[in-house]
């Protein structure tokens, strides 16, 4: 039995992996970045791409080598070597992946903690969603209300409180790298520190019905002073109904129900 050219195979995998990762890193994966979370997340992604490239290269090299080396000669009806396994090898390819994934998991956890870290001077913005529109409330500015357009200050952490009135929607600004579902009945939150002024798009990423593709809003990141000016210039306040908690909404629902039951005798009952 021939000995495997382990060293050569390893070098080939390394070389192929390096080529693949360089190629992969040429691609501009994410497009623009405009929040502090983008840095660590993009780096994590790049690291993962590199690790993955080497794994992929290893598999390809091994497969390619086997095909070249042990492709059967025409007419050869014989069998291969009756090798049933090799404990050492099997341990190696169990343990090394464990180390890789645990390391990546630890790294991810660190990044997660980093991007969810709350600043003391963060401001809160309420995000209301319903089929198929976004509206925003600014509790720190007297609950001013804007429809379809969100403004946030530059370089200040924003704690978005996400609400949904009917079905689940999801809050995503690709340049911020942050996404969170708006779930009816509960309030979820997303933490973002925009660090690049500009105009972006808020995209709904949870299927919410026929208008899902069009459920978008404009996001404007601007220096604090302009932001304050804009908010103060808003004329409307958040409607009462959006400020209710689920319990209060239930109470109101009940009252409406009772009223309807009251006029039931007229025969409009549909169930």
């Amino acid at each position: 039995m021939t000995r495997l050219p382990i060293l050569k195979l390893a070098l080939a995998s390394l070389a192929a992996g390096t080529v693949i990762s360089v190629l992969m890193l040429q691609i501009d994966w994410f497009g623009d970045a405009a929040a502090t979370a983008a840095g660590p997340i993009d780096l994590l992604m790049d690291v993962t791409i590199v690790v993955s490239s080497y794994i992929f290269a290893l598999v390809c090299v091994a497969l390619g080598y086997a095909l070249i080396k042990w492709r059967v000669q025409p007419g050869d009806e014989g069998d291969g070597l009756p090798i049933h396994g090799n404990t050492k090898l099997e341990v190696i390819w169990t343990v090394i992946p464990i180390i890789i994934v645990v390391a990546l998991a630890g790294y991810s956890w660190a990044v997660l903690d980093d991007i969810e870290n709350e600043d003391a001077d963060r401001i809160t913005v309420n995000v209301y969603s319903q089929q198929f529109a976004w509206t925003f409330g600014y509790p720190e500015s007297g609950n001013k209300w804007s429809e379809g357009e969100l403004h946030v200050p530059l370089d200040r952490q924003v704690d978005f409180q996400l609400h949904a009135q009917d079905v689940i929607h999801s809050f995503w600004v690709p340049e911020w790298r942050i996404k969170k579902d708006n779930v009816p009945g509960i309030t979820t939150d997303a933490i973002v520190t925009p660090d690049e002024a500009g105009t972006y798009q808020l995209i709904c990423t949870e299927l919410c019905g026929a208008g899902h593709s069009t459920m978008r809003a404009t996001v404007v990141v601007e220096p604090e002073a302009e932001y304050q000016k804009w908010v103060n210039g808003l004329s409307q306040n958040v409607p009462e109904s959006l400020l209710l908690t689920a319990d209060q909404a239930l109470e109101i629902e009940k009252q409406i129900q009772e009223k309807e039951d009251g006029i039931e005798g007229t025969g409009v009952d549909e169930t």
């Binding site: 993962t48 991810s108 990044v111 690709p174 942050i178």
Partner: peptide, 14 residues
């Protein structure tokens, strides 16, 4: 596996 890593999934989910 990338999707399994929470920070990446936060960005690319859906």
């Amino acid at each position: 596996v990338m999707l399994g890593m929470i920070p990446i999934d936060i960005h690319v989910s859906d």
